[in-house]
Design a protein around this nucleic acid. Sequence first.
DNA 1: TCTATTGTTCGAACTGTTTCGAACTATTTA
DNA 2: TAAATAGTTCGAAACAGTTCGAACAATAGA
Lengths: 110, 110
Amino acid sequence: MSSSPDLPHPERSEISLTTVLFALSDPERLAIARQLVDGPLDMAECHLSNPDVPKSTKSHLMKVLRTAGVVRNEANGRARRLSLRRDDLDARFPGLLDAVLSAEDDGPNS
Amino acid sequence: MSSSPDLPHPERSEISLTTVLFALSDPERLAIARQLVDGPLDMAECHLSNPDVPKSTKSHLMKVLRTAGVVRNEANGRARRLSLRRDDLDARFPGLLDAVLSAEDDGPNS
DNA sequence: TCTATTGTTCGAACTGTTTCGAACTATTTA
DNA sequence: TAAATAGTTCGAAACAGTTCGAACAATAGA
């Protein structure tokens, strides 16, 4: 019955363009966002390019996406449900998410 | 008659999405890109929010934009002509530049 | 209730980015 | 050719972001 660990999320109006761009400027974080396009995923279902990174590192990547307003992170049993904040991002920065997520590849970086 | 100082620019195919996003994730650099939407500008015509930053710092900001492929930097007399690489960016990442540059504001960051 | 599972948080070491002044290069004008 | 102008590059200091292990919190299941 105790309070579930609710993490802080920015409100729609608080989401900053440059902060979103920064969050998506890392290949690993961009890849996470792309995995969420087709719907929410539990943390454990989000895969990193290197499966051996410690969970604290993965948690940090998620935190950057969450505090930027890209992703929502909600308690789901003992797991964490991650979802793209598509409505909020589309309302705030029309076309941005589509452009970023639909870009074919990441050039020499991918 | 000596060679003019040609700075290195990535080719269209070498432009990386995450690198572009990073370049635009800084408010000052984003503001520079926005000043170039209506056409090329000489370096001295690009204004920073703080007019007192040293020229070496300004030059560095431009370098980040140039090496990311966001901006072209060509010799123009003893000045430097800066232009948005709109064609290349639109071809590589359709809709991205429009979405970024047309975003109303930068939220609490602006 | 005890234990295993899933993650978050914290601090420390590391790495990368930014800022600045000084030195340098190129170009224009006198 | 000398001096002024416009900007780049370099190195060092300051700052910010990343990575990791250890400690912690919450839930689920035995």
